[in-house]
Amino acid sequence: MLSYQHAYHAGNLADFHKHALLASMLDYLVRKPKPLSYLETHAGRGLYDLSGAESTRTGEAQAGITRALTEGWLPPGHPLLQALTAIRGWHGPDAYPGSPLIAQYLLRPDDRMDLAELHPAEAEAPAPHIPGARLHHQDGFVMANALCPPTPRRGMLLIDPSFEVKSDYETIPRFIQRIAAKWNVGTIALWYPLLADNRHKAMIGSLAANFPEALLHEVGFAPARPGHGMVGSGMFVVNPPYGIRDETARLSRIFAAL
C-alpha cells in the first residue's frame, strides 16, 4: 500500500493528457475576475527532475512531454506551455511540474489552494515549491469532504489517485456524488488510467449514468514497455468549463496520430 511514486512516470503521455486539460480548464476559470478555490486529493510533489534516476529508468517522459515539445503538440500561448516554460526558467531545463505547481502558476494571489497527500515521501516534497498552498498530510477524500463546499465557492477539485487502492474504482463514483451534491457549482475532475483489463469501465459507467452532461475524454497509446498495463488516459469532468471540448478535440487528434 502507498508504494506508488510518480517520479518514475512524471511527464509521460498520461501526464501530458491530464495536464493539458487541467491547464486549459484553469485558464478559463481564472478569466473571470472573482477568486476561486482549487483542491487536489492526491497532490504528489510540486516538481520533478526528468534527468533523475527514476525518470531515466523508465524513459516515459521521453515518449511524453519531451516528444510533445519536440513535435509542437502545445501551440504557442497554450497555458501548459506557458507554465512549463516559466517553471523551467526558474528550476532548469529538466524540471517538470506536477499538477499543484501548474495550478499555482495559473492561479492568482486571492485564489485558494488546498492540497492533500498521504504518501510520506510525497507529502514532504510539495512545500518548497507551492507557496501559499495549504498542505494536508491526510487522505485526500477526507480533506475534500471536509472542505466542500469551499470558500470561495467558485473553483475546481482534481481527483488524481494512483488507483493502487483497488477499492477506489467502487468508492469514487459515490464520493463524487456526495461532493457534487454539496458543491453543485464546482468543477470536479477525475483522472483515471485506461488499463488493458478494462477495470475502469464499471466506474465510468456509473459516473456517466449519474452525470449524463459531464465531459468524458479518453485517449489511447501504446504501453510504456512490454507487459505494462496502462494503455490510455481518461478524464471525467462534472461541470466542465465552457470551451474545454475544443481542447479535447485537439488532443484526440494528436493521440490518434501517434
Rank of each mutant, 00 (worst) to 15 (best):
H6T: 07
A7Y: 07
A7D: 09
N12D: 11
A14M: 08
A20C: 11
A23W: 01
D27G: 02
R31Q: 15
G46D: 05
D49C: 03
G52F: 09
E54R: 07
R57D: 10
T58I: 12
G59H: 12
I65K: 11
E71Q: 15
P79C: 02
L84A: 03
H91N: 13
Y105M: 02
L106A: 01
L107A: 04
L107G: 01
R108V: 01
D110V: 08
A116P: 12
E117L: 05
P120W: 01
E122C: 01
A123F: 06
E124G: 15
E124W: 02
A125Y: 02
I130L: 13
I130M: 00
L135N: 11
G140C: 06
A144P: 14
A146L: 07
L147W: 13
C148I: 11
S162E: 01
F175R: 04
I176P: 06
I176T: 02
I179A: 05
T187P: 07
A189P: 01
L190V: 06
A196K: 11
D197T: 10
D197P: 05
H200R: 00
H200A: 09
S206D: 14
L207R: 10
N210C: 03
F211A: 06
P212Q: 07
E213S: 14
A214L: 05
A214P: 11
V219G: 06
V219Y: 09
A222L: 12
P226C: 04
V231Y: 08
V237F: 02
P241H: 08
P241M: 06
Y242S: 06
R245Y: 04
R245C: 00
L251R: 12
A256M: 04
